[in-house]
Design a binder for these strands. Structure first.
Ligand SMILES: [Mn+2]
Ligand SMILES: [Mn+2]
Ligand SMILES: [Zn+2]
Ligand SMILES: [Zn+2]
Lengths: 143, 143
DNA sequence: TGTAAAGTGAAAATCACTTTCAACAAGGGG
DNA sequence: CCCCTTGTTGAAAGTGATTTTCACTTTACA
């Protein structure tokens, strides 16, 4: 799926008349082989280990591009840092966020999704995206 | 209910050994008679009309106090600004946010709330708070 | 290759707050 | 009332995350 995402990004770059660069390749490879929900800072630090000359701004710009191309999603969990997660083709999930250790669990619930659609319909509202996050203590932190 | 919230705040102030000030009174009165989901900037501008000498920082500090006392709730809708809404005793709701005109609609759905609890339970997760926001186009903006 | 257009890194700028600090008020004795 | 301790305020400086600027590369393709 790493290969598939790289292709999607390559195609996006072409379609937009942008250029393929060494930096984007390195940042994409590192992003794809990192855990989900990485903050920009975390990715930047990880990158710097092998590529000390990659600029801070370039990481920001690249992640933004990844999101535009559809292979990544930007998200905020209220800790003041933007995080990015890999987007799997045709998949959707929401999150459980531990307020003590920061762990992020994912879940899918078709019934909730359907109810959301119903709520929107009853307000004559057209849903484009939604955000459902449950904050609390994960199993480990509840002790 | 304005009266009730003022009392809650007065009690909170006393309990914490804080002081009642002209600024806090004015800011609270203005906040309570404003629409819900006001950004700090919006409230500050509204205040400045009648009270040009009230400081920016004081508005921030006061809203934070209101939230601590339980009469207001801090929220983020992803537009980069913190908004505050009035908290009604024992009531909870989630939001529909129009991405075109910024209108914010509220809704309550007990079934969704229950399902959230179920999801959390299945992950041995203890919910403290949650955030459910549906982003899209309101009736007016769908045209 | 030649070159127009896009990309990069470092540093400066923004943005939305938060903190600092010296001048001011509250409010509880006396 | 007056004092005095302590919390409060406004202006300005500071923060931290993200963006923009700009002189200097690179890339893509003619
Ligand atoms: Mn996720
Ligand atoms: Mn609301
Ligand atoms: Zn945890
Ligand atoms: Zn609208």
């Amino acid at each position: 799926m790493k290969r598939a995402k790289k292709k999607i990004f390559r195609d996006y770059i072409l379609e937009k008349g942008l250029k393929s660069t060494r930096q984007r390749d390195v940042i994409l490879e590192t992003f794809l082989s990192s855990e989900r929900h990485m903050s920009i800072e975390e990715l930047y630090l990880k990158l710097r280990a092998k590529h000390p000359n990659i600029g801070y701004a370039t990481v920001y710009r690249s992640l933004k591009l990844f999101a535009e191309s559809g292979i990544a999603r930007e998200m905020q969990f209220g800790d003041g840092q933007t995080r990015y997660e890999h987007v799997e083709e045709g998949e959707h999930h929401d999150h459980l966020v531990c307020t003590r250790c920061g762990t992020i669990l994912e879940f899918e619930n078709e019934t909730i999704e359907q109810l959301q659609t119903d709520v929107a319909a009853s307000h004559d509202f057209l849903i484009q995206t939604h955000k459902l996050e449950l904050y609390g203590l994960c199993a480990k932190c509840r002790k």
